[in-house]
């Protein structure tokens, strides 16, 4: 992947999309071969070095990574724990730190007024946007997104992906998103990679593909 590139990964359930993201952010060790992420191999790094690399890689899941019992502001702040001391992280739970950035990030996903609510009181779509705000606060160079728009209505899905793309490419980074919706993939990404049973079955620039072709691809893999 080149800097500034936005890549969509498509494929049926179980094709290996989430595993790919896991290998890239270092939470799944590769069974064979090696990967280079931002110039480093996560498998060879330890401790602080590994954490520094991970802080530069932002992953957004399907909002399941949020702690439901915490207020929204803390879940957003959780994106920058890598750069906070333990004491600051603890104190922030009593008196939220850096609320300016948090409110700014929440405003960009349209949730500024919910900053101090408990996260499990929000709807699925709202929680997904909290996960996006966490990423905005983390400011990673490589953005890995696992179905970032699955619980959002079409208009919000578009803004969410635009946001992710801008976040990644605006700072010279890249975006890798697993998507179920072919139209969304073509609108927001430069390149589409299709996976079938863990192998790359398709790799083409987005402008050379049509929605119908991609739907056919889903049909094949199912």
């Amino acid at each position: 992947m080149a800097a500034g590139e936005r890549v969509a990964v498509v494929g049926a359930s179980g094709a290996g999309k989430s595993t790919l993201l896991g290998v890239l952010n270092g939470s799944v060790p590769p069974t064979a071969g090696s990967v280079r992420v931002l110039g480093h191999d996560p498998a060879t790094l330890r401790g602080r070095e590994l954490r520094r690399l991970r802080a530069r890689t932002g992953t957004v899941h399907q909002h399941l990574e949020l702690a439901g019992q915490l207020r929204v502001v803390h879940n957003v702040n959780a994106g920058r724990l890598a750069s906070w001391s333990a004491a600051r992280a603890a104190w922030s739970l009593v008196r939220p730190q850096g609320t300016g950035d948090v409110l700014g990030a929440l405003a960009r996903v349209g949730l500024a007024d919910r900053a101090y609510e408990r996260t499990d009181r929000l709807s699925g779509g709202q929680r997904q946007r909290v996960a996006l705000a966490r990423l905005l606060v983390q400011r990673p160079e490589l953005v890995l997104a696992d179905e970032p728009a699955s619980a959002l209505d079409p208009a919000l899905a578009d803004t969410a992906l635009a946001l992710l793309g801008e976040l990644a490419t605006g700072r010279g980074g890249a975006l890798l998103a697993c998507l179920h919706d072919p139209a969304l993939a073509l609108r927001h990404c430069d390149r589409v990679v299709g996976l079938v049973d863990g192998r790359v079955a398709l790799d083409a620039p987005a402008h050379a593909l049509t929605v119908a072709e991609l739907e056919g691809f889903y049909g094949v893999s199912r």
């Binding site: 690399l53 991970r54 890689t57 899941h61 949020l66 915490l70 333990a86 983390q138």
Partner: peptide, 25 residues
């Protein structure tokens, strides 16, 4: 374990991971 794993993937140190990932639940 997912909240804690996500924090690990974002590079949070252990103490912060415990505070934001495990303690709330």
């Amino acid at each position: 374990r997912r909240p804690g794993e996500a924090l690990r993937a974002a590079g949070a140190p252990p103490a912060a991971r415990w505070l934001y990932g495990s303690v709330p639940a």
